[in-house]
Design a protein around this nucleic acid. Structure first.
Lengths: 226, 226
DNA sequence: CGGCTTATTATTGGATCCAATTAAGGGCAA
DNA sequence: TTGCCCTTAATTGGATCCAATAATAAGCCG
């Protein structure tokens, strides 16, 4: 209630991401405003922003509809994330890691090693891995030292499932997740090795491939529009 | 007057791109609204959109300031454009060119050849080359067949000087421009050759390098903030 | 009976008004 | 004289109102 604008934006984002508003749903100002208990103004702002982010598309001259996102869309967005993070890794390797970045990355690797050392995963480990994973990618991006890459990535990550933060782990099959996440973590190790040795091309190629590790195809197939 | 909203947006974009509103300039709603002769509402919309596009940054909790764009920012944005168009080229090569794309690209090459055949450039040729250049990049992007790449590029191109459309030709030194644009056109030829032969990696590498052809460093150095 | 035209309604965009928040400046006290 | 607090002004965000526009439905004419 303190910030209706931000509230509306968050709510709509969440409803779109969660599938509560499936692709193709028409969003008019007045009904949504009434549904959320605010005036039309914050809704208008939110709709414009969500359009800019690519979550909504204009329905002719009359309002917006929720974007229908296909599996191909997600794969393409992940591919884009791959080349962008790859470029960040290339630049980081060429510039060299500074002290704090090096320490942070080593910490990420150690945290991951601790998770996998016991040979299996327990429920809380998924969240711990996600946290470490986000940190790793964030540090790497910062080490790339390019505002343009950061912005392009932030824009790209608006798409549901495309972000690093949405790695869609299946908590019901911890055995399978162990292998998947362990593989991803090994890629982290390899990327760090390449960075430390100044091997830009290798770091880039690894990060490009690593983007695919986010995808858990079978899980994604359910709950997609069109 | 028919469309105050779009008018305000266009005007502000142009004033920012032209340097009439230099980096760091504070933009408050009321003064700009009065200056443009409209109410605060379309200005508010425009400011939000321009913030999303990255042309404005928030000044604390009070209004926006025009983003200061450095030469490094532009180089980084061009680098990002390179990897994105490179990815589009890679995908286009792997998917294969369809009939209309192939024809359109050949037409672009022929148009360019005609321009350079006479051994020198005349004033109107610059505009003709720009037109052909935009067409070439557009067709290639379409051939990549990825909405994610297109969106990432569109967002990246909002930055002044970063877009394909801003190749900053120096009309006072047509001799130098002849060599520069001819080189760029040769890269177009090479990219098409790679595409036609299904050489994805080659096409990608060429497009990545080709992005740099937009930059005319000496011309850009003047008129930049900070 | 069907197509075209017109009228009505739904919906967005713009303007003005109001409240809330923050920054700045001045005054008072130590 | 300086620092802190209080008051005031400026500016943004939200709500309501009004106008313009497009879509839909109904009625009339062919």
């Amino acid at each position: 209630m303190s910030k209706p604008g931000a509230q509306v934006l968050m709510t709509l984002r969440q409803q779109i991401a969660s599938g509560e508003l499936p692709g193709g749903t028409r969003l008019a100002e007045i009904p949504t405003a009434q549904a959320l208990g605010v005036s039309r103004m914050p809704v208008r702002m939110a709709l414009r922003i969500l359009e800019q982010e690519g979550l909504l598309v204009r329905a002719g001259a009359r309002g917006y509809t929720v974007r229908s996102v296909t599996l191909d869309d997600i794969v393409a967005a992940v591919e884009v994330r791959g080349v962008l993070e790859g470029l960040a890794a290339l630049r980081a390797a060429e510039r060299g890691l500074d002290q704090v970045a090096d320490t942070a990355l080593r910490q990420c690797l150690a945290d991951g090693d601790a998770l996998f050392a016991k040979g299996h995963l327990i429920e809380g480990d998924i969240a711990a891995y996600e946290d470490m994973n986000i940190r790793f990618h964030e540090v790497l991006l910062a080490a790339g030292g390019s505002q343009a890459i950061r912005e392009a990535l932030m824009r790209n990550d608006h798409l549901p499932f495309a972000s690093v933060k949405a790695l869609a782990a299946d908590k019901n099959d911890l055995e399978r997740e162990f292998r998947r996440l362990n593989y991803a973590h090994m890629q982290h190790h390899a990327v760090y090795d390449a960075l430390a040795k100044g091997q830009g091309a290798r770091a880039e190629a690894l990060m490009r491939e690593h983007a695919n590790a986010t995808l858990a195809y079978t899980d994604l197939l359910s709950g997609l529009s069109s």
